[in-house]
C-alpha cells in the first residue's frame, strides 16, 4: 500500500455509501509513505489508516469498511501533527504530492509536551550564556587597549622664528615627529602654523586671559601668556580635521582657509566664515633665546564648540 496517492478533495466512499472527502494525508516520517488519510465528514475530521483503503481512483477513494465502522475511526488531533512545510524530512515532498493540500507528519511522542520543550529551550539559552558571557569583558579590554593612551606632553622642536618675516601672517612649520606606534618606531611629517602677532592681534588671541593646557587628570601642563608674541595654531582644522592653508581670499584678504568645507579664520584664529564651530586651536609654545620654537603636539577633537583634548 506504500504507493497510495489519494488526492485532496476526492470523495471517500465506504462500502455502503459516501462519507466525505479527503482533507489531508498523513505521512510516516520514516518510511515516507502515506500512513493515513484524513476524511472530513459532517464537520469532523477522522484519520483512516491506509489499510482500510480498498482502491484509489481518479476522483474517489474506496474504503473497505462500512459507514458505521468509519465513524469508529479516531478524530484528528491536529496539535499532534505538523505540516510537511514546517518540518525537514528529506525527499518527503518528492514522494508524496498532494497539491493543493497539506501533508501532515505526526509530531514525535517526545516533542508533544510543551513544558518539556520550553525547559530545553531555556537550558540552551542559559548554556549559551555560559559560553558568551565570560568573553565579554576580556574581549572588550583587548580591543580597547590602544584606544585611551595618555596624552603626549613632550616638547618638540619645530623650527626657528627667523623664518617669519612679517607680523600677522600665517607661516607653516613642517617637522618630523617620531613616536612608538604599537611595535613600530615611526616618524611622521606633521605641520602647524605660526603667527608672529602684532600687539592688537595678541590682545585678541588672549582676550580670555592666559591659555592653559591640562593633562588627562586635569593637572596644568603649560600656560601660554602674552609675553610671547608668537602663537602656534594646530594644523588640524577644528571643523572636521582637514589641513588648512594661509591663502589670499578675494574679499577678506589674507586668511587661513580650509579647502575641505571652506572654513575661514583670520590671523587670530577666529572664525570669519564657514562651518567651523570654534577658533583655531592654540598650542603650547616656548621660544628660546636662540629663536628655536618648541611646541607640545596637543590635539583636540574636531567639530566641537569646546576644546576636548584627545592627544
Amino acid at each position: 500500500m506504500g504507493s497510495v496517492q489519494p488526492k485532496i478533495k476526492s470523495k471517500v466512499r465506504c462500502v455502503d455509501g459516501e462519507v466525505g472527502e479527503v482533507a489531508h494525508v498523513i505521512a510516516d516520517p520514516l518510511s515516507l509513505d502515506v500512513s493515513h488519510i484524513v476524511v472530513r465528514a459532517n464537520g469532523t475530521e477522522r484519520q483512516v489508516p491506509v489499510s482500510a483503503i480498498g482502491a484509489v481512483r481518479d476522483d474517489a477513494v474506496q474504503l473497505t469498511c462500512n459507514v458505521a465502522q468509519f465513524s469508529g475511526f479516531p478524530e484528528l488531533e491536529r496539535e499532534d501533527y505538523v505540516s510537511s512545510k514546517e518540518v525537514e524530512i528529506p525527499h518527503l515532498e518528492d514522494r508524496i504530492r498532494v497539491e493543493p493540500g497539506e501533508v501532515l507528519v505526526p509530531l514525535p511522542v517526545l516533542e508533544k509536551n510543551c513544558a518539556r520543550r520550553s525547559f530545553f529551550a531555556g537550558f540552551i539559552k542559559v548554556i549559551g550564556a555560559l559560553i558568551g558571557l565570560p568573553l565579554v569583558w576580556p574581549v572588550l579590554r583587548f580591543i580597547m587597549k590602544p584606544m585611551y593612551v595618555p596624552y603626549d606632553n613632550h616638547w618638540i622642536k619645530i623650527g626657528n622664528i627667523s623664518k617669519i618675516k612679517t607680523d600677522d601672517v600665517g607661516v607653516q612649520y613642517i617637522f618630523k615627529k617620531s613616536f612608538k606606534d604599537s611595535v613600530l618606531e615611526r616618524e611622521e611629517d606633521k605641520n602647524h602654523w605660526l603667527v608672529k602677532a602684532s600687539p592688537e592681534t595678541l590682545k585678541k588671541i588672549y582676550r580670555h586671559g592666559d591659555i592653559t593646557f591640562y593633562d588627562e587628570k586635569g593637572a596644568v601642563v603649560w600656560v601660554n601668556n602674552q609675553t610671547v608674541p608668537y602663537v602656534a595654531f594646530s594644523g588640524k582644522c577644528p571643523h572636521l580635521g582637514c589641513g588648512y592653508k594661509w591663502r589670499s581670499h578675494k574679499t577678506r584678504g589674507q586668511v587661513f582657509l580650509c579647502p575641505c568645507h571652506l572654513s575661514i579664520y583670520d590671523a587670530t584664529g577666529m572664525v570669519l566664515d564657514g562651518p567651523a564651530p570654534r577658533s583655531l586651536d592654540v598650542l603650547p609654545i616656548k621660544v628660546a633665546a636662540s629663536g628655536d620654537i618648541e611646541i607640545i603636539d596637543v590635539e583636540y577633537k574636531a567639530g566641537k564648540k569646546e576644546q576636548v583634548r584627545i592627544a
Binding site: L30, P108, L110, F120, F123, I127
Partner: peptide, 25 residues
Amino acid sequence: TTEELKAKTDFFFPRQVWKDIVAMA
C-alpha cells in the same frame, strides 16, 4: 526496530541542540 526508532525520535530542536550546546560549553 522501526518501532523503537520511531518511539525515540525527536526533533533537532530542542533536544539535540541542547546536547550540542552542552558539549560546546
